[in-house]
Design a protein around this nucleic acid. Structure first.
Length: 957
RNA sequence: GCCGGGUUGAUGGAAGGGUAGACAUGAUCGCCUCAAAAGCGAUUGUCCGAAAGGACGUGCGGGUUCGAAUCCCGCACCCGGCACCA
């Protein structure tokens, strides 16, 4: 294939381990494993039930984040995690566990849909082709998956249950007192019985059906509401924030994007904010990921405070109630519902010119500002964050602590979606408020004594003084004083006062928002929801699931004049009148009726929110998963009080969204009694990325990395010098290396070893094709230690190995066991290499006992060569289910160890001593050593530190 | 801006506070070969030295310790995440 390929050359010896040999044995054993069902994990019952002896073992459920089947296929960066879980799963299988390891496909997604829009080809066809391609690419790596359990999220048998779970969520509410989800029927019963007062008063039975539906909508965990979204008329679809560019246009097509309120489905994930936060503590996840989730959930403690205005009040949320005396104005979000109410007809006497925005009346000013704010994209708002804008509403509220009037503004630096959408502004101690106050010439009152020497005269300040560790000043008012208190005590004191006066209370706020759950796309799960003539949403009964995607002629949403913001999306499904308008008997006693189907589809995240559960019982047509099977694989156990998957490996890019959504769904299903674990993934591990060098020519364009020549540390493409940088691997940067290419040159075992040996699993590192050969050589030497290269005969002998070999063997066993258990594959391989090199160096035939142990050590890492050698060594059963070797402690310690003797921490001598030597004996020997005597040069000894048997450190006087 | 993580030979990386650089790539030399490749063997942190040996070395500056790549403080740079969240 390439001239640099050492394996392409004719082998010098007829039975050497070459790429051709690797290809032959790998294909042969892959076929055998498939036919044999070697990796089938037995369930305790059902269609996948199996050997009770295996079921009785402790279980290990080892999972990868499943892939999106891209048409582009895999490059060598993709399978890193799959290989790692495979090695770990194989190791667990050899240490007495029933191991569930499989892989499915997250197959709804935009690329297939876009391809369908462009070509008219059904996305299912392209997706299935991509799945098949990916399956054959992965098969070649020898991954030990239980293929009976694989599925794709686009399978109707699978998304039936995605829809079923949606309905479970739709038909439940969050009981704040019990802190758990309950069926919505229980809430209705409470309203009916009067146990729970009906919101808005009155009795439940007297309400209209529509009124009841509205009330229940306020409780349901899945609900439709008008939410501001990124609406792009030119594309005819709403867009995710990531799909909108910095200047507020669509990334694709460069059309304008508007904020529009559209009726959308949401998931009430905010109900679970505290549980999602608290339960993180129990999980064995990287701290960095837990932290990202904590930040995303964003819990802040503070207080709600009511500011009286015109006989009513505006409620604000603040984390700094201790600075209430410094609140000199208020700000509402432009969309705040109370804005109209507190916008009078005329400007009050003496209104500052800067506050009016040049408008004749408050109404005009507010309307103009609101229009301007609505036309801005989020990104624009952020870009202009430094320049504070806003306008006076014309009203004053009253600061409850001192009775001072405070002007009420609207400004887009206050967001409707957080807290109460209203703030008290304390310009002296908040940088945003400070900037706004300076722009609008508002008073700045210092209430926290600066500790940086700037003094309390705020006229001289250039920025706000922000501190949580300073004294409150200037804060005495109606029956309460905070002067002299620290921030923490002041918060407690003022909160107490607010509560006693009935003008506020301590409260907790979360940054987490509800999850926007609908998309205007074709290629997603249809909602199992229909609307009656009154527009009331009804669940489809379980018998009507799955609600399959209809066949359509046109996969694209309707597009509009790109600049016409007053349009709304028309989904691909909505044009299909025959499908949308149906007469159904929902089995609710109302008989057949006319309904309209929901025409949005679910977001890509839906299918990945629960897929771990379906691996357990993939063919169950009665239930999502059989409870006994679910408890067996996912149930709580010792050291794992929440239960869950034993190891989940994937990229850190899913730190929040996927992992948070999946945790949320698990908690709902747990609350409703469908599963036994409220957490899906007990242990999470983030693998690093395989990066690759990118070579760019003088114009900055990437050139094919495979054709680069290196001379004296400089790089050339077709004779022209090019620049090298580190980037992602992929087609667009012309640096993709496919697993097939490496398999062809060296074999899958070499590829597996190389990926695992590159470095620690969680660290990103550059791919270096040149270095792959190192692992190939290891396998060649391993092969040569068992098989004669010339004759092909097995060369092992039945004699006892020598002492040094036994020690090398048992140290390797001990180290490899620990390293594999700790996912330290790179050092495990180093230890195997050391042992193998020891045998190579020793020369002569290897004793059977050592050869067999060595083969077992490499089995998880390089299963094909291990299976082949195992059989050649005369075994008739697969190596996959053998016991992993156990080290004999007697041989793990060396006969003699090297003891270093330091003088003042510097190594001066090395001694060979017995590992059992006593501190006293070692000290005596060390002090007698001539090099030590020379180094001490007659100086007296102040102190001797002895750590037998490895170290003596002498401190001279 | 805030929050995380990192910085060790030419390169990827090893080192429970105790021999810095395991293992691998690359490079140099040698064996084998008509030759090359493959394979096998040796050397390979830097500096001084013919050698023996010595000095210096884990981004930079300080500290704790008998002893620091490892712990603490400050700084620089790199990589991620969040971003007007009151």
């Amino acid at each position: 294939m390439s001239e640099t390929n050492p394996a392409a050359a004719e082998p010098a010896a007829p039975h050497r381990y070459t790429a051709a040999v690797a290809a032959e044995i790998e294909a042969r054993w892959q076929d055998f494993w498939d036919a044999d069902g070697t990796y089938a994990a037995p369930n305790p019952k059902g269609d996948l039930a199996g050997d009770p002896e295996v079921v009785a073992r402790p279980k290990k459920f080892i999972m990868d984040m499943f892939p999106y089947p891209s048409g582009a296929g895999l490059h060598v960066g993709h399978p890193l995690g799959y290989i790692a879980t495979d090695v770990y799963a194989r190791f667990q299988r050899m240490t007495g566990h029933n191991v569930l390891h499989t892989l499915g496909f997250d197959a709804f997604g935009l690329p297939a849909e876009q391809h369908a829009v462009q070509t008219g080809e059904h996305p299912r066809i392209t997706t299935e082709a991509a799945i098949n391609n990916m399956k054959s690419q992965l098969r070649r790596l020898g991954l030990g998956h239980d293929k009976r359990r694989s599925f794709a999220t686009i399978d109707p048998d699978y998304y039936k249950w995605t829809q079923w779970i949606f309905l479970q969520i739709f038909n439940s509410w969050y009981d704040d007192e019990a802190k758990q989800a309950r069926p919505i029927s229980e809430l209705i019963a409470r309203f009916e019985s009067g146990e729970r007062p009906v919101p808005g008063g009155g009795s439940w039975s007297e309400l209209s059906e529509a009124a009841r539906a509205d009330i229940l909508g306020e409780y349901r965990l899945a609900y439709a509401s008008d939410a501001p979204v990124n609406w792009c008329p030119g594309l005819g679809t709403v867009l995710a924030n990531e799909e909108v560019t910095a200047d507020g246009r669509s990334e694709r097509g460069n059309f304008p994007v508007f904020k529009a309120k559209l009726r959308q489905w949401n998931m009430r994930i905010t109900a679970y904010a505290d549980r999602l936060l608290d339960d993180l503590n129990e999980l064995d996840w990287p701290e960095a990921i837990k932290l990202q989730q904590r930040n995303w959930i964003g819990r802040s403690e503070g207080a709600r405070v009511d500011f009286p205005i015109d006989g009513e009040h505006i409620t604000v949320f603040t984390t700094r109630p201790d600075t209430l005396f410094g609140a000199t104005y208020m700000v509402l979000a432009p969309e705040h519902p109370l804005v109209e109410k507190f916008t009078p007809a005329v400007w009050p006497e003496g209104t500052h010119d800067a506050w009016t925005g040049g408008h004749a009346t408050p109404g005009e000013a507010v309307a103009a500002y609101r229009a301007q704010a609505a036309s801005k994209s989020d990104v624009e708002r952020q870009a202009e964050a430094k320049d504070k804008t806003g306008v006076f509403t014309g009203s004053y509220a009253t600061n409850p602590v001192n009775g001072e009037p405070v002007p009420v503004f609207i400004a887009d630096y206050v967001l409707m979606g957080y807290g109460t959408g209203a703030i008290m502004a304390v310009p002296a101690h908040d940088s945003r408020d400070f900037a706004f106050a300076r722009a609008f010439e508002l008073p700045v009152v210092c209430v926290v004594e600066p500790t940086d020497g700037r003094g309390t005269d705020t006229a001289t300040w250039e920025d706000a003084f922000v501190s949580y560790d300073a004294k409150i000043v200037n804060s005495t008012g109606k029956g309460v004083s905070l002067d002299g208190l620290g921030v923490v005590e002041a918060k407690a004191r003022i909160t107490e006062w607010l509560e006693s006066e009935g003008v506020g209370e301590g409260t907790v706020n979360f940054r987490l928002r509800d999850w926007l759950f609908s998309r205007q796309r074709y290629w997603g799960e249809p909602f199992p929801i229909v609307y009656d003539e009154d527009g009331i949403a009804h669940s489809l009964p379980e018998s009507m699931l799955p609600l399959e995607l209809p066949e359509v002629e046109d996969y694209s949403p309707r597009t509009f004049d790109p600049d016409d913001a007053d349009t709304s999306p028309e989904t691909p499904l909505s044009r299909n009148e025959d499908w949308v308008n149906v007469t159904l008997d929902l089995g609710d006693g109302r008989g057949p009726r006319a309904y309209r189907r929901e025409t949005n589809t679910m977001p890509n995240w839906a299918g990945s929110c629960w897929y771990e559960l379906r691996y357990l019982d993939p063919h169950n047509s009665e239930k999502l998963v059989d409870p006994e099977i679910e408890r067996y694989w996912m149930g709580p156990r010792e050291g794992q009080p929440h239960g869950g998957v034993d190891l989940y490996v994937g990229g850190a890019e899913h730190a929040v969204l996927h992992l948070l959504y999946a945790r949320f769904w698990s908690k709902v299903l747990f609350d409703l009694g469908h599963i036994s674990s409220p957490e899906p993934f007990h242990k999470l591990f983030n693998q690093g990325m395989i990066q690759a060098f990118v070579y760019r020519d003088s114009r900055g364009f990437p050139v094919p990395a495979a054709e680069i020549e290196e001379r004296d540390g400089k790089f050339f493409f077709q004779g022209e010098p090019v620049k090298r940088e580190l980037g992602k691997m992929g087609k667009s940067l012309k640096n993709a290396v496919t697993p097939e290419a490496i398999c062809e040159e060296y074999g899958a075992d070499t590829l597996r070893l190389y990926e695992m040996a590159m470095g620690p699993l969680d660290v990103s590192r550059p791919w270096d094709t040149r270095a792959v050969v190192g692992q190939y050589r290891l396998l060649q030497r391993l092969w040569r230690n068992v098989v004669d290269e010339t004759t092909g005969e097995v060369t092992v002998v039945d004699t006892e190995p020598d002492e040094a070999t036994l020690r090398a063997l048992h140290k390797a066993i001990d180290g490899v066991r620990h390293d594999l258990e700790g996912l330290r594959f790179n050092t495990a391989i180093a230890k195997v290499t050391e042992l193998n090199n020891h045998l190579t160096k020793a020369g002569g035939p290897v004793s059977r006992q050592v050869a067999e142990a060595l083969v077992l050590l490499v089995t998880p890492l390089a299963p094909h060569i291990a299976e082949e050698l195992w059989r050649r060594l005369g075994h008739t059963d697969s190596v996959v289910h053998q016991d992993f070797p156990v080290a004999d402690p007697a041989y793990v310690v060396d006969e003699t160890v090297t003891c270093v003797v330091q003088v003042k921490g510097k190594v001066k001598a090395r001694l060979e001593v017995s590992p059992a030597i006593s501190d006293e004996e070692l000290e005596k020997v060390a002090l007698a050593d001539e090099k030590v005597v020379a180094a001490l040069d007659g100086a007296g000894i102040r102190k001797v530190i002895v750590r037998a048997p490895k170290l003596v450190n002498i401190v001279p006087a």
